[in-house]
C-alpha cells in the first residue's frame, strides 16, 4: 500500500512542477500585453503628433499587433491547460459542500473515488483521444492563423489541450491511489492517505486564512 502512495507522490511532484512552471506564464503574458499597448497606442500617438518619425516607429514595432494578440491567447491557453491538474491536487476547484460537510470522511473518499472513475478518467480519456486527432488535423493541414497576418504552426497550441488533460489525468490517478489506500489499506499508510485527501479534517478551528 505504501508503494501506491509513493507512486502517488511522484505523480503529484510532476503535476505540481508542471503547474508551477506554467503559472509563471502570467508574467510574460503581462509583458506581451504591455508591449502591444506601447507599440499600438503610444507609438501611433507619437507618430501622429510628429514627435517621432515613421522610420523609428517601424523599427520599434518588431512584431505586428495581430501576432502579439495571438501570442497572448497562446500563452493564456498553455497557462490554463497546464494548471488544471495542479488545481485538482490543491483542491482549488469549486465544490458544492452544502451536503458534503456533513458526510463521514470515508464516504467523502468513496465519492472522490467514484467521481474519478466515472467522471474524471472518462472525460480526460475522451479529450486526450479526440485532442490527438484535433492536433493531427492541424499538423497535416499545415494550419496557420485564420487572420493571414497571425502566427503559424497552429498544431502546437492545439496539442496543449491533449497535454493538459494528460496532466489532469495524472492528478486524478494520484488522488485515486490515495483513495484506494485510504479505503482498503491499513496502518500508517491509511492514516497518511486520509490526511492527504482531507487535510481540513485534522485542522484546528477554521481561521480566515486562504485555502
Amino acid at each position: 500500500m505504501s508503494a501506491l502512495l509513493a507512486v502517488s507522490h511522484r505523480l503529484e511532484r510532476i503535476v505540481s512542477a508542471i503547474g508551477q512552471a506554467a503559472a509563471w506564464l502570467t508574467v510574460p503574458l503581462m509583458l506581451v500585453i504591455i508591449y502591444d499597448v506601447i507599440t499600438r497606442n503610444v507609438l501611433t500617438w507619437l507618430v501622429r503628433n510628429q514627435i517621432i518619425g515613421d522610420g523609428l516607429a517601424d523599427a520599434l514595432t518588431l512584431v505586428s499587433s495581430t501576432k502579439l494578440q495571438e501570442t497572448e491567447w497562446h500563452l493564456h491557453g498553455i497557462l490554463l491547460l497546464m494548471t488544471f491538474g495542479m488545481a485538482y491536487l490543491k483542491d482549488a476547484h469549486v465544490r458544492i459542500e452544502l451536503v458534503r460537510d456533513h458526510l463521514r470522511p470515508r464516504l467523502k473518499v468513496w465519492i472522490e473515488l467514484i467521481g474519478i472513475l466515472l467522471a474524471l478518467i472518462p472525460y480526460c480519456g475522451l479529450v486526450i483521444y479526440f485532442g490527438y486527432d484535433f492536433t493531427l488535423r492541424s499538423y497535416e493541414n499545415h494550419e496557420v492563423s485564420a487572420a493571414l497576418t497571425g502566427l503559424p504552426y497552429r498544431f502546437i497550441i492545439k496539442s496543449f489541450i491533449m497535454f493538459g488533460f494528460v496532466v489532469i489525468l495524472m492528478a486524478g490517478v494520484a488522488t485515486l491511489l490515495r483513495c484506494i489506500v485510504a479505503l482498503f489499506g491499513g496502518g500508517p499508510a491509511r492514516a497518511e492517505a486520509m490526511a492527504l485527501l482531507d487535510p481540513e479534517h485534522e485542522e484546528a478551528p477554521q481561521g480566515a486564512a486562504n485555502q
Partner: peptide, 18 residues
C-alpha cells in the same frame, strides 16, 4: 450530483459524457 461535493466542472463534464 452537484451536491455530492465532487468538483462542479467534473460533474458537468461527467454528466455530459454519460
Amino acid at each position: 450530483l452537484l451536491f455530492t461535493g465532487y468538483p462542479v466542472a467534473l460533474v458537468l463534464g461527467g454528466i455530459g459524457i454519460a
